[in-house]
Design a binder for these strands. Structure first.
Lengths: 147, 147
DNA sequence: CTAATGGGTCAAGCATGTTGACATGATATT
DNA sequence: AATATCATGTCAACATGCTTGACCCATTAG
C-alpha cells in the first residue's frame, strides 16, 4: 500500500488532472468553433462514430441530455451532411444515425488532435509510465459506478 | 519508443480520460448544487484557497473568464461568508481575497472528495502505476503551452 | 492636475441547458 | 379494427452562464 498523500500531493494530482483535461479539450474546441460547432456536436460525432447505427434514444442516454437539447445540434449536423439518419428496417420508428464521409473525416481530425496529444505524452513518458497511467485511469473512469 | 497506437488504443485512452474526468467532477458538483453553487464557485474557492490574498485581477486571469463573469459568483461567496475581500495595504485599489473559516471548511470538503477518489485509485493501482500516472499527466498538463 | 489602473456594475446578446405540452407515424395489444 | 404505447420531433418558456460594451468610482502614477 501507499503512504497516505499529504495535502500538497493531493492538490498536485488534482491540478494535473484539471489542467490535463483542459489541454485535452482545447484543441478540438478550437477546430469546432471555427465551424460554428460546439462540444455537444463533438460528442455526437464521437459516439455516432463509435456506434454507427445508434438510435436517437440511445444517444440521448449516452450523452445524458434531454431530447430537446440533442435535437438542435443533431439537426445541424444532419443539415451539414456530417451525420445521416436512416429509418431502422426492423422498427421504422427508430432512426439509425451514422457518419457520412465528411462526418468521418471531421471526427477523425478531432480524434487525431487528442490522440496526438496523448500519444506524445505517452511516448515521452515511456512504456511503463503509460501502462501505469492506464491502470490508474481505468479505475478512475469506473469510480463513478462504485461511489 | 512506443509502438504507434492503433485506433482502438487511442480511443480507449480518450474515453478513459473523458470518463475519469467526469467521475472526478461529479462528487463536488453534487455537494455544490445542494448549496446553490456551481463550478465557478468551486474554482474560485480552490484558487483562493491555494493563493490566499490573491487579487481579483489575478483570479480573473487564472480562471480565464471576464470580470463580469467572475463578479456574481464571487459576490455570492462573499455574501455567504465563505470568502473575504480586504483592501491591500500597499495599493488600496486592490482587493485581496482569502477564505473565511467556513470557506476553508467547504473547500476542504470539496478537495477531500476528489482526493479520496484519486487516492483510492492510486492505492489500488500500486506505487509504480501511480508514478507513471504522474509522469504522463505532468506532460499532458503542460502540453497546452507547447502546442 | 491628469491619466492610468483595479475593480464594480448595468445592459444586451448568445449558447446551452432544462421542463412541459403536443404532434406524428409505427408498432403492440386486445 | 380500435386503442395504447413508443420513438422521435418541435414549439415555448425559462434559467444559467458566458460574452462584449459602456460607464462608474476610488486610488495611484506621471
Amino acid at each position: 500500500m501507499l503512504d497516505p498523500l499529504d495535502d500538497q500531493d493531493s492538490r498536485l494530482a488534482i491540478e494535473r488532472l484539471y489542467f490535463a483535461y483542459r489541454a485535452f479539450t482545447a484543441g478540438p474546441d478550437r477546430l469546432l468553433e471555427a465551424r460554428g460547432l460546439g462540444r455537444v456536436h463533438h460528442r455526437i460525432l464521437y459516439f455516432v462514430g463509435r456506434k454507427p447505427g445508434i438510435s436517437v434514444g440511445t444517444l440521448i442516454d449516452t450523452l445524458g441530455v434531454s431530447k430537446q437539447a440533442l435535437n438542435s445540434p443533431l439537426r445541424a449536423l444532419i443539415e451539414r451532411d456530417l451525420v445521416i439518419a436512416q429509418a431502422s428496417l426492423e422498427d421504422r420508428r427508430v432512426r439509425q444515425l451514422s457518419l457520412t464521409e465528411d462526418g468521418r473525416m471531421l471526427e477523425a481530425r478531432l480524434t487525431e488532435i487528442q490522440t496526438a496529444l496523448l500519444e506524445r505524452a505517452f511516448a515521452e513518458s515511456g512504456r511503463e509510465a503509460t501502462e501505469g497511467w492506464h491502470t490508474v485511469m481505468a479505475r478512475l473512469a469506473t469510480a463513478s459506478h462504485t461511489v
